[in-house]
Write a protein that binds this DNA or RNA. Structure first.
Length: 677
RNA sequence: GCCGGUGUAGCUCAGUGGUAGAGCAACCGCCUUGUAAGCGGUUGGUCGUCGGUUCAAUCCCGACCACCGGCUCCA
């Protein structure tokens, strides 16, 4: 979610004369030091952010950074995290400090406390934070003369000591994932603490090991809110103790905070789990088990429309539709190489006739068997298999979530077998195809991620360095050629090869990982896949895995949130509902609806004994694209009257024209409207 | 899997150590209506499951299941 971030105003550099503070220079340049556009830090000539009380020894040119710029917001949030930590230690003196970095739209701080935080605690902490902010405490940077000095001062903070020790190691051996640069200058040779000073007394009231920089004063924290608390493993490893994390958000102004909280509300309103119940789309019966969904008739309509369309498009793009079973003997997954890597996340095997059978967690091994079922010629390549393959994965109990993280899912999975020479074109073809499909469903804003091998963890990946290099280069080139933004994801590759994933932004700016394209040189070798080349020799194909939506279930969830349940007409479970003004208008509307049904439109008449206004309300709540009303007037004129979801109307439309209108909107597969506007 | 929270009617939620209530939905009537809730009535719950404490448990305790928020993980 990207909130109301605005691009930083282009500010001229200001000159800080030797021996004076950055603050004085900013002030001399006539820039604000308070208010919603306050300059809070400066960027020096090396690109490093500096506190406003930084006093360079020689004249420097610096770039003022405003509180509402991306960097300024990070500083604001980082400082707010400090205020939170101070409040926590005021109220819970035994609390030990973890780390407290800014994150997108907010911040968090980790603490070790005797008792996990309760919601009431957050309210108390917010109140204490308000007091601290009101005091206008000053953040002051202080440099430790030595590691020993730092350790002596931080003796009562075991986690901070650990961080200092890590630094003492020379910063080496830090694979465990935490960003120590948050608390200290990695490689910068500096160890600093920020003291919080009460401006009235000049006394130090609190302090925290931190690299900074910080706001000049807590007073600049315009608005903040603590959002939730949760446990988090120290330094990100489940082998370490769990600390209690408090998440919060902070903004330069109350209005900006309000706007962000509205966005969160909007996200909650769109939650597909809630809409799935309200619109009667799907449910997760306890009796079946966690993470296993059933689609109700209305959800089934959307799912079928999606599948029908996607199947047709695959066939148009040269894919051949195949089908495979849900279980297999274990040997198959040994051959493919999946079992050693994923045994823990596959459902445990069942024994039958002396063999172990696994529920399948991936489709590719079975597609490989189809490839191998007979000799293949180079003339067949690229050979493209596609299916809706339902797979089962034993997701840990704590991670199952709605449709986005399930234990049974249907992949729109394809595998292209081609020569290494054909691979770049095939990847390009797939990328264009997946983007066109996403566009067809109304997702038009995306960027790419390139997931590569982590060379420091060779046991997580199989294959030679050369093969990885080739595969990665092919994907990278295609990604670059697409012109889309490309974000690296080191270490994110599957064990058998690198991947491109498409991240799509939804209507309220959240991004979701959708399609993936993976280059795999491993499985063809493991399965001994071959084709006969033009010269008669036997050659090894490469295979390219691709899922367009990833999982049909998840994509339906994403679409539900993207459209807030108001699906485009072509996907809507009920496309038209007829609303009679009076009970005796039902037959008139029924004949209209029959005409629509003859055209394949999903239409019905609301013949309940509710009043017309109530029927409109019901149809609105069900987010039905076309409401069609008819009373005496329309019946006499041979017309109907449209009310659309957005409340707009088109009255007195002749029957045939009305039918043609609905049919046109539905068949166009437009993702807009419909509306009279 | 780990930490915390939650679990009462189809949905949203009250409630209490003495075997339960509202609104909406559903059903039955009355009303006959032109663009977001007409009126009345009825039905509906082993209070997530199992065990314990107690004369008595929906309420207290424990285990399990599920969901929510995170962490970790995500072929």
């Amino acid at each position: 979610m990207s909130g109301s971030r605005q691009p930083a105003a282009v500010v001229d550099r200001v000159v800080v004369p030797a021996g004076t503070t950055a603050s004085e220079a900013v002030k001399a340049a006539g820039l604000p030091l308070t208010g919603p556009k306050a300059i809070v830090v400066v960027r020096d000539e090396t690109g490093r952010l500096r506190d406003l009380d930084w006093t360079p020894e020689v004249e420097v040119h610096v770039e003022p950074v405003a509180i509402d710029s991306p960097d300024g917001l990070s500083v604001l949030r980082h400082s707010t995290a400090h205020v939170l930590a101070q409040a926590v230690q005021d109220i819970f003196p035994e609390a030990k400090l973890g780390i407290g970095p800014p994150i997108e739209n907010g911040f968090y701080y980790d603490f070790q406390v005797a008792r996990p935080f309760q919601p009431e605690d957050l309210a108390k902490l917010e109140k204490r934070m308000q007091e601290i902010i009101k005091l206008g405490q000053v953040f002051r940077r202080r440099r430790f003369a030595s590691l020993e000095e730092a350790k002596a001062e931080l003796a009562s903070e075991p986690f901070k000591l650990e961080l200092v020790d890590i630094k003492g190691d020379g910063g080496a051996g830090q694979g465990a994932g935490i960003d120590t640069s948050e608390v200290m200058e990695v490689g910068g040779g500096e160890l600093t603490i920020y003291d919080n000073i009460d401006p009235k007394t000049g006394k130090r009231v609190w302090g925290d090991l931190c690299r900074g920089p910080h706001l000049p004063s807590t007073r600049l924290i315009g608005a903040f809110s603590l959002l939730r608390s949760a446990a988090a493993y120290w330094r990100g490893s489940e082998k370490n103790p769990q600390l209690q994390r408090i998440y919060g958000t902070a903004w330069p102004t109350k209005d900006a905070l309000k706007e962000y909280l509205h966005l969160l509300e909007e996200a909650a309103r769109r939650d597909h789990r809630r809409l799935g119940t309200e619109l009667d789309l799907f449910s997760f019966p306890d009796e079946i088990g966690s993470g296993l969904v059933v689609f109700h008739p209305k959800g089934g309509v959307i799912k079928r429309e999606m599948e029908d369309y996607v199947r047709r498009r695959h066939i148009e793009e040269g894919f051949q539709y195949v089908g495979t079973p849900h279980i297999s003997k274990e040997g198959l997954f040994h051959t493919s190489g999946h079992l050693p890597y994923y045994a823990e996340t596959m459902f445990p095997p069942m024994q039958m006739e002396g063999a172990n059978y696994y529920l399948k967690a991936m489709n590719c091994p079975m597609h490989n068997l189809i490839y191998r079922s007979r000799g293949r010629s180079y003339r067949e390549l690229p050979l493209r298999f596609f299916e809706f393959g339902t797979v089962y994965r034993y997701e840990k109990s704590g991670v199952v979530q709605g449709l986005t993280r399930v234990r049974g899912l249907t992949q729109d999975d394809s595998h292209s077998y081609c020569t290494p020479e054909q691979a770049p074109d095939e990847v390009r073809h797939l990328l264009n195809f997946v983007l066109s499909l996403l566009r067809d469903f109304g997702l038009t804003d995306y960027y790419l991620e390139l997931s590569t091998r982590d060379d420091s963890k060779p046991d997580k990946f199989v294959g030679s360095d050369e093969d990885w290099a080739v595969a990665t280069a092919v994907l990278e080139q295609v990604a670059l050629d697409s012109g889309l933004k490309l974000v690296p994801d080191p270490g994110g590759a599957a064990f058998y090869g690198p991947k491109i994933s498409v991240q799509a932004r939804d209507a309220i700016g959240r991004t979701w990982q959708m399609s993936t394209i993976q280059y795999d040189f491993n499985q063809p070798a493991r399965f001994g896949l071959e084709y006969q080349a033009a010269d008669g020799s036997r050659q090894r194909p490469v295979m390219i895995h691709s899922a367009k939506f990833g999982s049909i279930e998840r994509f339906l969830g994403v679409l539900t949130e993207h459209y807030a349940g108001a699906f485009p007409a072509w996907l809507a479970p009920v496309q038209v509902v007829g609303i009679p003004i009076r009970e005796d208008h039902v037959p008139y509307l029924q004949s209209f609806v029959d005409k629509l049904r003859a055209e394949g439109i999903r239409a019905e008449v609301d013949d309940s004994d509710d009043r017309m206004q109530k029927k409109i309300r019901t149809a609105q709540q069900q987010k039905i694209p076309f409401m069609v009303l008819a009373g005496d007037q329309d019946a006499a004129d041979g017309t109907v009257s449209f009310r659309y979801r957005d409340g707009s109307q088109r009255n007195g439309v002749p029957i045939d024209e009305a039918v043609a209108h609905v049919v046109e909107v539905v068949r166009s597969r437009t993702n807009e409207g419909p509306s009279a506007a």
